[in-house]
Each structure stands twice: as structure tokens, then as C-alpha cells.
Design a protein around this nucleic acid. Structure first.
Lengths: 197, 197
DNA sequence: ACTATATGAACGAACGAACGTTCATTTAGA
DNA sequence: TCTAAATGAACGTTCGTTCGTTCATATAGT
């Protein structure tokens, strides 16, 4: 018998796809086995329990997500805020595309495990932004905290694309995604008020 | 035997509390019965299936959520955008507080039912904002679409408080909730750029 | 006013199906 | 031939749902 590593990957892939669509408790180990083209018992040669399989999925996605060659990380280091606002929008879009499955699993963890497996990710958030910020510098109005501003911009874009892609509310602003990137950029830069008012 | 209406309410309350914390498939009808102080079989006198019980919960919350005496609806009609930006922030905070359980159930529906029950809510969203907008008027820069701007502001606040309250990431901007309302207002009004730059 | 009857809410044991997990056995690469 | 990966039947449990029964109350006949 040979392909143990390959089967492990097939199981992870199948589990991700099913958990994503039906949640954790709504997906059975038998379904995972069938979708992976693997026997039921074999799952337990690779993962001690169903929950450990789920946790492994989150951990492997997380490692990839925080790797430095991901689009958002590159924008953080390559350009200065707020010049990179639209680039942040574009990178957010690509991130939600590439990691949509991961984000769905984060929601699964929040809903079915009360965020047991992913709590620490959010806690590390602001700290991460601070570090990025210190490294890159920023040129914003003096009554605006640059770290908070960068978070606000990135989260704004993120939430837009999460709505569009994960919640499948296409065009919920009545414009294309690229138009929305521009529109958000316009507002984040100069605000909604008429000038000199 | 009398109290059928009261028991119905007790079942709904118990189910909401359990679904909220453990998700749909992670909650059994037996748990609901115990928590409601009602027999297992009696649940089926009030709701034909477990899923219909879940759908009823969503529907009843939705009706309350869209009632005109909710804080957000009042802000929409009482003041003009963008003068009401901070009021939108405050109302978003109150809405997430009051409807936190409902919002958790929306996530449950998205995760475990692929948004089967709540899809239409999001689809009606922009239309609703348009109507509000037409009724109230708005005074924004002429290159800014006022409906999109109002959505952007409201969603921005909403997502902040959903993070704080539902995902329990307290203080993720490194400031209090009231400070965040002011900070967001500052950025939405005038943007992050230094003046005359 | 009193009693017999009809109603349907509430109960909880029971049902078959499906669950996560185990393990004795088979299979195939070294 | 030896060994570890792979298998799927089997196990005990729990699931959503059903159903025969109980019994407090409402209704109707006298």
C-alpha cells in the first residue's frame, strides 16, 4: 500500500468542501470518506477524531493565510498608507477569493464551536496591524490614528467582499466590485461631506 | 390543559438560546425540550419539524427587526445624512446589542443551511436603503452616491459592533466603543488624508 | 346545576436511521 | 515474506420523529 500522504490530502480537501457547505455537525465522516474516495476507517488512520480533522484544516489554512507572499501582506509592505488604499481593496478582494473556504470555516468554528479554535487569530489582529504600520509609516491627517485608519479601510473592503462572495449578495451596493473599490477609496480618502462645508 | 401559547414561546426561547450557542445540528430536540421545561413530544405539537422551528425563529426575529420603532429605523427617518453619522453608529450599537441573538442565527443559517432561509433579507437590502434615502434627502459631495455612502457608513459601524459583541473581540481597534463611533464618524465625514494634500 | 362526553395539549417510551469510532481482516509495496 | 496502509462490518449511542396514552378543561344534554 502506498499513497498515505495523498489520501491525507484528499481527506482534507473533501472535508473542507463539505464543512464549508454544511457545517461541522451537518457533515458525517461517511460523507467525507465517499467524497475523498477513501474508506471510512482510513480517515482514522490519518486523524484521531473528526474534530481533530477540523482543527487541522483550520491550522493548515491559517499557516498559508499568514504567509508573507499573500496579496495583503505584500500591499502592507510595498506601499505607504493611505496611498495604497485601492491596492488594499484589490488585495482584500483577492484574499477573499483565495481564502473564501477558510473564512467559511472560521464562521463554522464561531457558530458550532463558539470560536474555540480561532479565537486567538482575532486577538492578534490589532497587534499585527501595529507592526505593519510601524514598518511602513503613514501620512494621514493629524487627528486620525493611522493604525485604526488602516484597520478601518481594510475591514471595510473585507466586509464588502465577504458579503459579495461568502453571503452571495452580488452587487449589494448597486455597483461592480471594481467600482466599489474606487468608491470606498474616494470616501476613505476625503469623506462624504461636500468640500468647505 | 391550557398554556399552549406559553409553551410555544418557551420552546422558541430555549431553541434560540441553544442554536445560538451550539448551532443547529449541534443542538438536539431533547436539549430544547429540557431547557424549555416541556416534553419531547410536545415540541411536535407546536412545530412540525426541527427545521421549521428554526425557520420560525428566524421569521419572528425578522419581523421584530424590521419594525419601524427600532433604533436604526428611527435614525433613518429623524435626521438627514450625513448629519446623523454618529447617530447611525449609536443605533448600530444598540441594534447589535438587541438583536445579537438574531444575528448569530443568521450566521447559523449561512453556515449550516448555505443561507437558505435568510437569502432574501440581504437581497432586499439596497432597495430598503434607497427608499430610506429618497424619503430623507442627503447632503454629500456631488461625486458621492448618497445611498452607497449611507450603506457604507451603516455597514462599517455594524461590522465593528459585530466584531466586538458577536465575535467577542473587545477593543479590537484599541479604543472604547464610543471613541470608535467618533473615530469612524471623523473618517467617514472628512477622510483620512491631510487637508490640502 | 349537574353530569357525561368531547377536545386536544402534554407526555415519554419506542422506532428506525444515522452518527462517530473501533477493530479484525485484507491488500499490496518493500 | 513481512509490514503497514486500507478496508468495511460492527458497536454502542444518539438522533429526529411517531404514537398510544393520560388528563385538565370546555361543551352539551338533561
Amino acid at each position: 500500500m502506498k499513497p498515505t500522504a495523498e489520501n491525507r490530502t484528499r481527506i482534507l480537501k473533501a472535508a473542507a468542501s463539505l464543512f464549508r457547505k454544511q457545517g461541522y455537525h451537518g457533515t458525517s465522516t461517511r460523507e467525507i470518506a465517499v467524497k475523498a474516495g477513501v474508506s471510512l476507517g482510513n480517515i482514522y488512520n490519518h486523524f484521531p477524531t473528526k474534530e481533530k480533522l477540523f482543527a487541522t484544516l483550520l491550522a493548515e489554512y491559517e499557516a498559508e493565510y499568514f504567509s508573507p507572499d499573500q496579496p495583503l501582506a505584500k500591499v502592507f509592505t510595498s506601499a505607504r498608507f493611505p496611498d495604497n488604499i485601492e491596492a488594499l481593496g484589490q488585495a482584500s478582494k483577492e484574499t477573499v477569493e483565495r481564502f473564501g473556504d477558510y473564512m467559511r470555516l472560521i464562521y463554522v468554528d464561531m457558530v458550532e464551536f463558539d470560536a474555540k479554535h480561532i479565537g486567538r487569530i482575532f486577538l492578534a489582529m490589532r497587534e499585527r496591524y501595529s507592526r505593519v504600520q510601524l514598518a511602513a509609516g503613514a501620512k494621514v491627517a493629524k487627528d486620525v490614528d493611522p493604525v485604526a485608519a488602516m484597520m478601518m479601510v481594510t475591514f471595510g473592503y473585507f466586509n464588502f467582499f465577504i458579503m459579495e462572495r461568502l453571503f452571495k449578495v452580488k452587487g449589494h451596493y448597486g455597483m461592480s466590485e471594481d467600482e466599489a473599490i474606487k468608491f470606498f477609496g474616494r470616501v476613505y480618502r476625503r469623506g462624504v461631506m461636500p468640500p468647505n462645508d
